[in-house]
Simulated scan of single mutants.
Amino acid sequence: MYYWYKKFKDAPGSEMGGFTRILHSGKADNFMDEIPTVVVDPLPDGEDRGYIVLNRPWAFVQWLRKADIPEDYILMAEPDHIFIRPLPNLATEEMPAAFKFFYIVPTENEKVLRKFFPNEKGPIANIDPIGNSPVIIKKSQLEKIAPTWSDVSIKMKDDPETDKAFGWVLEMYGYATASALHGIRHMLVKDFMLQPPWDTDLGNKYIIHYTYGCDYNMQGKLTYGKIGEWRFDKRSFTTGAPPKNLTLPPPGVPETVVTLVKMVNEATASIPGWKGGE
């Protein structure tokens, strides 16, 4: 991610400012000299309830309090995001910009959400179908949302019905609900991000999100749910970095997947000292 940020930061059309990796381990790691990093504390032992993502909103609360941030707007993004072209500021003074996730559906979860978003706050549709990432938001708005995001996410995790309903996307609902509690609606930007293998055309998108495994046979046919003869899946590299020069997909695989692998290969070939498996 950081490699491609640096490639596009000063390109025509970019409005990208500084870059900060927020590290919520409470201690420095071996990337501190390579990537601009702010270290914050994790939640106290046991407070994440076995759901490590609860540390994310708490990390933003700490970062916003301790960091000197000269920019007026903040992009929240994740390590499995790759910039594929220069990113302008998609937000406005009034409305942050966000990506709509098909699996975040507040209107289908009104029963549990009303525990955290009471009727007097308005219709449940005031909760946007988003997570916190990718989001471009005015810093002053995020400073209001972040503490509520942390509190609401913890309360959701502590409620068995809500925890069961939302599972691994609970913290995403936490961000969306916290935003709505502050009366902040997001502009849903379709071109913000694409997600292979489901998105097959690059179009005018800004970010590739490689969250899903990409499995294909050698005829270029998707075999999702079954390990393919050719595959790219970030979960294959949980114990170490990917090797250089990954094999490109076979003919017929969509351009989004081909572009993803080519961009990974360029980054690993260009980053000094890159060693696969470490």
Rank of each mutant, 00 (worst) to 15 (best):
P70V: 09
F83M: 14
L43A: 08
Y51Q: 04
A67R: 04
E47H: 13
R49Q: 12
D72H: 06
E34I: 14
A67I: 03
L87D: 06
W58G: 00
D45M: 04
P88D: 04
E71R: 05
D33Y: 07
G50Q: 10
V39Q: 02
I52F: 12
P44V: 05
L64G: 01
H81D: 09
W58N: 04
Q62T: 08
L75Y: 04
F83K: 00
V61T: 01
T37D: 09
N30H: 15
M76Y: 04
E94D: 12
D45T: 12
R56A: 03
N89F: 14
T37V: 09
T92S: 13
I74S: 01
Y51L: 14
P79G: 13
M32N: 10
Q62R: 03
R85M: 10
L54F: 03
M76N: 14
P70M: 08
Y73M: 10
M32V: 14
R65H: 11
F60M: 12
E34L: 15
M76F: 10
P96Y: 00
F83L: 15
A77L: 06
E34S: 14
I69T: 09
E93K: 03
Y51A: 06
A67Y: 03
N55S: 04
I35W: 07
E34M: 15
N55R: 07
V38H: 11
P79S: 14
D33A: 15
V53C: 05
A91Q: 02
H81M: 07
F31W: 14
V61K: 00
K66S: 14
E47V: 10
D72G: 11
L75C: 09
I74M: 04
I35F: 10
M95K: 14
N89S: 12
I84A: 09
Y51M: 14
F60D: 03
F31R: 11
I52N: 11
D72F: 03
